[in-house]
């Protein structure tokens, strides 16, 4: 059952990475997550937002939409852009693969999202944009 939801849109500039992960962390803090769970969510959000800025918009102006939803057993976040899209999602998700080797990217973005979250879904259309949806199970602790 859906317990809570949120939606926030911001400019695709690196300054907003901190804002995005801070907002995501604040959204789930009521579930009493562990420090590790919180760090993992913040890192995964940061990776998705960085991807949208660096790869989706390639430094050009644009908007990023972040949505969050809290269900009984898990939280779901999605990060969407209207950038160039990913032509080969399977390849992009391979560890150490980077579309920008000249920019000293580590190629770890999707691997980190997959490792830190419980599910990761990537939808992308060339020229239309990319939407990354992630869920994470959060155990409710008895207070």
């Amino acid at each position: 059952m859906l317990r809570n939801s949120m939606k926030v849109e911001f400019d695709a500039i690196t300054d907003n990475e901190r804002f995005a992960r801070g907002a995501a962390a604040a959204f789930v803090v009521g579930l009493d997550p562990t420090v590790d769970e919180l760090s993992e969510i913040k890192t995964a959000i940061s990776e998705a937002v960085t991807n949208a800025i660096i790869h989706g918009y390639d430094g050009r102006a644009g908007k990023i939409l972040m949505e969050g939803a809290i269900y009984d057993e898990f939280v779901e976040f999605s990060v969407s852009d209207e950038g160039v899209g990913i032509s080969d999602i399977r390849r992009a998700r391979e560890p150490l693969y980077t579309g920008k080797p000249e920019d000293e990217r580590s190629g770890m973005g999707f691997t980190i999202m997959e490792t830190f979250m419980d599910s990761l879904d990537v939808e992308s259309e060339r020229g239309r944009g990319t939407r990354v949806t992630m869920t994470k199970n959060i155990k409710r602790r008895e207070m």
Partner: peptide
Amino acid sequence: FMDSSGIGVIMG
């Protein structure tokens, strides 16, 4: 806090 950009800057 660190994400893969931190790894990138060390590798670079």
